[in-house]
Design a protein around this nucleic acid. Structure first.
Lengths: 139, 139
DNA sequence: CTTGACTCTGTAGCGGCTACAGGGTTCAGG
DNA sequence: CCTGAACCCTGTAGCCGCTACAGAGTCAAG
């Protein structure tokens, strides 16, 4: 008999932090597992898959709620793919907006680098913070 | 006599949320203002500048602690500009890393869009979450 | 005198974890 | 049989940077 899959084992197998697993259970992202008489959680191997699914979804930047939806979609395979596609599209729009924001920010910061002023009296950054109307236009 | 500058007025003048101003005072980013006998905070016009400075620093993505440092630099103009430059550089590195991350993410997401599968049985996103090793390489 | 707009303090919530404290359990080595 | 390490448990608090109350006091216009 292989040793039973406690939370620590599952954590190592799935690559998800042990405390995070308990957190996911608490917020309803993971089902309540079986408990031994000593109160320990024991998991079957389907939980590894489920946690990896969650981890990948999070790595792709989906929120917990979105991951929850995706899990439901994965569990009910007869539903149309449109919902998943919609999530991806919406997320893609957000990511692209964030990229644009950061690139504008990068341009401003680049202009502020390599200021060789011996004092901050004429420091570009400080002057920018004090005088400019607004560096980032959107919002 | 113009009406005294209460926190609400300062909020409107600086573009910083009223509750945020109180929060900044609490964490030591803003000095304690004068108080009237009724307990109301009253601000002089230098506070507008200070708050705008903070707001712009935040818009540029600097953390509260970094903004605190920048405020000190702005207050002590005889110090070399190097410290400010160092902050900008470090921040720029972070921003560029984040852009790179998001662009990789965008590429993955783009590949996942426009899945026309009538069910999620062969949905690209779901399959990706279930099967792929890892979409984002770094970490 | 009332009404409504302001102000105050203190605390709790957001997301997504992470890190304890203070206890119980299990197992291997001596 | 005992000890100690390595687990496990619950519950709560902290992180960041705000934001949103509740419940109270204050002020000025009509």
């Amino acid at each position: 008999m292989s040793p039973r899959r406690t939370i620590g084992v599952l954590s190592r197998e799935s690559g998800v932090n042990l405390e995070t697993i308990r957190y996911y259970e608490r917020i309803g992202l993971l089902p309540h597992p079986l408990r031994s008489t000593n109160g320990y959680r024991y998991y079957d191997e389907t939980m590894i898959k489920r946690l990896r699914f969650i981890r990948r979804g999070r790595e792709l930047g989906f929120s917990i709620d979105e991951v929850k939806t995706l899990l439901q979609l994965a569990d009910n395979r007869d539903q149309p793919c449109r919902e998943a596609d919609r999530l991806v599209q919406a997320h893609l729009v957000e990511v692209e907006a964030k990229i644009a924001d950061l690139m504008a920010l990068r341009d401003v910061l680049t202009q502020l680098t390599h200021c060789q002023s011996p004092t901050t009296e004429h420091c570009r950054l400080i002057e920018t913070l004090e005088q400019r109307r607004c560096c980032i236009t959107s919002d």
